[in-house]
Nucleic acid binder design. Structure first.
Lengths: 358, 358
DNA sequence: TTGAAAGCGCTAACAC
DNA sequence: GTGTTAGCGCTTTCAA
């Protein structure tokens, strides 16, 4: 049984109030008593009980974090940023993951609020249409969104998002492709309707192409969690007019694409250029390095924790748009004079069903 | 101000005891009062305060997690496993990261214990020589280690580790290399003294080679966090007798190695085979896929959470050794008849100091 | 089936 | 500089 303030008081032969002062405001305690308290605390291995303190104080110094999954390095890095920033100000962090499941999201928020976190950092599928956020607003719970991007959207009141400018970032990616002479640029994305930022990235894709006088092809949507590309999907991705470059809405998809292309005998970047989105550290360990639009995940997390701290303090905090950075990696090269021909239908287009059947 | 049990009681015209029962043991409350309590709770948006409950109950249902960093996908995945398992039993999870810093480790543990977590899951640099673990033992705090591997070590009492058999796993990696005709096999590792498991992997490397009648070369140690390989390190890695295969103590190092080799014109796996350790999901998205010894990170996390639950319940729980899995990826091929010659000293061996100077 | 009351560990207002 | 005491929100005896 852990010892309490009472035990310390008894042992030091003083009142609990003085022990409390010794712990929290030692300057208001005489040197002599302070020493006695110290001795007692050491002897008893006293460790203040945060629960008692928090119950009394009506706040906890706890931040609740609700993210889809740590298996995605994007969120893992962001979480690290949150933790870093929180630890600087002595806040602690409670994490719950949701796998984008609305019901788990609800439970997570509820649990965190029962624990009386001072505020929440969260990522949801679509921030403009999330019932839980409406409730948080109604209950005046301080919260900050990460990655969700409602900045351009008309909302009153606006939600505090810490994010990059997804649309502009996507435009930059496409422009980098255009600058290398690419005209046929296809987009590969996770389910558009399931992610506000994916939709925004698609907008950027369209805009950049249209500004260049090129008619964008419809994006190829594939299941967010797949770790193989189905033959049908690959076929759609390469359907005529054969693309010389592919813009993927995230790095994971980009890696998957590169692999699929190579398996069917296409060279990256000689035959097809590929650019991703996220800037996973890992992409830069590869050879060739992955061309991508890097998001400052760590800073997104840190920024969110800081913004949240201010919201908790009662400030009105606007959304924060952090700069993205185009990484001109080795998977991006000049467009080939003529698209590589696929004389033979590669095996992966016909027989790779077994690997894909999970 | 959030409403409390007292508010609900007042509004429902009953005592707080009955409200408490309505929440926790509704079967002991008459249907009629239950309805009244429900109505009051809804009207007041009542949310039970976990702090009060926990203070009273003398346990919290909180698990403390202490890990080096979530930027490392190994720990991120493990953390996801912990969270998954915890959420099944209604436990919640508080995370603190340490960057392997002993002082941060101490603070993290202290903070978590002040919050009265029921137990801890942690990874430390060297479990056999960690002062904090000794204190946890002395205070009878339930805890479980992940990745740390003291299984083979004589210790009384043994610490509960959830891990793979690092030594055997390394042996398997080397055997796979031997089976492909490799005779000159070098090992690349992070600082050996800083990691009990790296040391064990090195043991496995030595053993497997010696069993095959081959004298192992000393391992090449490089800074754990570097994201470029220094020319001097690369030179040591390739020093005669020129290796035809390289065993890296983790996947990150393996990726780095592959990149460095390719930059100097060596082909992987044609000239040099590379095998890693960890089984990062990402390694399988690459082309060629990374040969590696996969650890079941998710299950390690889940297993730890479950083991911890049992320790909290008072059981004595032995260490758990989870199976590793050899992934025979594309970066591993038959040894070349003669090692590739490096006629010219590649530029990366002489001039790449700028990239490395961070 | 319900209520009164004690107490979990702590802080802060107030009195000395 | 120190002590007394109320009370944060909750559960759980014990009585009724």
């Amino acid at each position: 049984m852990a010892s309490s303030i009472k035990d310390v008081a008894t042992r030091a032969g003083i009142s609990i109030a003085t022990v409390s002062r010794a712990v929290n405001t030692p300057e208001r305690v005489s040197a002599e008593t302070l020493a006695r308290v110290q001795a007692a605390m050491d002897a008893l291995q006293y460790r203040p009980n945060a629960l008692g303190r928090q119950l009394r104080a009506m706040h906890t110094g706890l931040l609740g974090v609700v993210l889809p999954s740590l298996a995605n390095p994007v969120f893992a890095e962001c979480m690290q940023g949150i933790e870093d920033a929180a630890s600087v100000t002595g806040q602690r962090v409670m994490l719950m993951t949701t796998a984008y499941d609305l019901e788990r999201e609800a439970r997570a928020i509820e649990t965190l609020l029962e624990q009386r976190v001072d505020g929440l950092v969260l990522t949801v599928a679509d921030a403009a249409a999330n019932p839980h956020l409406d409730r948080l607003d109604a209950e005046h719970v301080p919260y900050v969104l990460v990655y969700n991007d409602t900045v351009g959207q008309p909302r009153i009141p606006a939600r505090c998002c810490v994010t990059v400018d997804n649309r502009a970032a996507a435009r930059d990616a496409i422009r980098a492709l255009l600058a290398q002479g690419h005209k046929q640029i296809r987009m590969l994305t996770g389910t558009l309707s399931a992610s506000d930022r994916a939709a925004l990235r698609h907008d950027g894709y369209r805009e950049a192409l249209e500004a260049a006088g090129i008619a964008p092809q419809p994006p190829v949507e594939i299941d967010f969690n797949a770790d193989v590309m189905l033959p049908a999907e690959l076929a759609r991705l390469l359907a005529p007019p054969r693309p010389t470059a592919i813009f993927c809405s995230n790095d994971r998809l980009a890696l998957l694409t590169i692999r699929s292309l190579r398996e069917m005998g296409l060279r990256v970047p000689e035959d097809v250029s590929v650019i991703g989105f996220d800037g996973l550290a890992m992409g830069q360990w590869l050879m060739p390095t992955l061309a991508t639009v890097a998001q400052p995940h760590r800073q997104i997390g840190e920024g969110a924790a800081q913004a949240l701290a201010r919201r908790i303090a009662g400030e009105v905090v606007p959304s924060i748009t952090l700069p993205h950075r185009l990484l001109h990696g080795g998977t991006l090269a000049r467009a080939p004079a003529a698209p590589a021909s696929l004389s033979v239908v590669p095996s992966s287009l016909t027989s790779d069903t077994q690997g894909a059947s999970r």
